[in-house]
Design a protein around this nucleic acid. Sequence first.
DNA 1: GGTATTATGGACATACGTGTCCATAATCCA
DNA 2: TGGATTATGGACACGTATGTCCATAATACC
Lengths: 135, 135
Amino acid sequence: MILSASSVHALRAVAWLAAHENGEAMLGRDLARQVNVPADYLSKVLATLARGGVLTASRGVKGGYRLARPASRIRLIEVVLPFEGKRAIPGCLLRPGHPCRESGACSAHPAWGRVKDAYTAFLEKTTIAQIKGGS
Amino acid sequence: MILSASSVHALRAVAWLAAHENGEAMLGRDLARQVNVPADYLSKVLATLARGGVLTASRGVKGGYRLARPASRIRLIEVVLPFEGKRAIPGCLLRPGHPCRESGACSAHPAWGRVKDAYTAFLEKTTIAQIKGGS
DNA sequence: GGTATTATGGACATACGTGTCCATAATCCA
DNA sequence: TGGATTATGGACACGTATGTCCATAATACC
C-alpha cells in the first residue's frame, strides 16, 4: 500500500505522540502497545526518527520519547523520508527514475501527473497536527 | 515507487503493444527488448496478463502476444491487479486494512482521502489507450 | 557510588519481490 | 511425421523489508 510498513508505523507513533503530549516523555514499550506495533521493531523506527530530528529520546528512569517540535511544524515527508528513501517522491510512471518534465514528458504523464502531484503535495504540505486526531 | 516493478513492467509492455499493433503477434523477446526488461522475467509477467484476459498468447512459429481487446477498453487496474493484489486499492493511511468510511474515519482521512481518491480513480478510469503514446 | 530503568545497537530469522536458468508443452511449417 | 519455434512452468539465487532476541550504554534515583 504505497507507503512501507515502517513509514506507517512511524506516522502512527508520531501522530499518537502528538495527540497525547502532556509534558512527560513516553516509553517506547507503551507507545508500541498503543499503536499496536511490535516493540522491538518500533524501537528501531523511533531511533531513526530521533536521529532525523523528529523526536528527542532520553534514557533511564523518566526517559522515553517526545516530539522535537510542535506537531504543526512537523511535515509528513520528514517522518517518512528515512524509510522511503528516494522512492518517497514519485517520478515518471512508465520510465522509473526519469524526471518526466513537461518537455518530453512520457505518454502517461497527463493521467499520472494528477496522482503524482496529489501525493507529493500530501507529503510535503501536510503536518502531523493535521492527522493526529485525538482532540 | 507506489507501483511494484512487475506492475510497471506490465504497463510498459501492454502500452508498447497498444502503440505498435499491426495485426501480427509480437514475440516475447522482442517485447522485452523494446521495453528494456529482462526477457525471462517479462515472460512471467506476460503469462500472468494472458491468464488475466488482458493479452492473448499463441505458441509456435508466428506466435507471440496480442491485446485481448482494443486498448481503449483495457483499464490500468486490470493490468496491475494481479501484481499488486489487495494493495492495489489503498485503504486507510494509519490503520492498514481498515475501510475508513466517512463515519468513524481515521484522523488522517481528510488529508489522505484526496490522494487515495486520485490514485484509485487513476487506476479504475484510465485506459491503456490514454497512456500508450506513439500516435 | 550502586542499582534499576530506559534507549541503542548488533546478530539473526523469515518472507517476499525480483531476476536467472533450464526443461517441457504446444504450435506451425516443410 | 518430424523438427524448428514459441510460450509455459519449475527450481533456484539474491537483496531487502520486516521482525525477533539479546547484550550494551546512558541516565535517574536512592
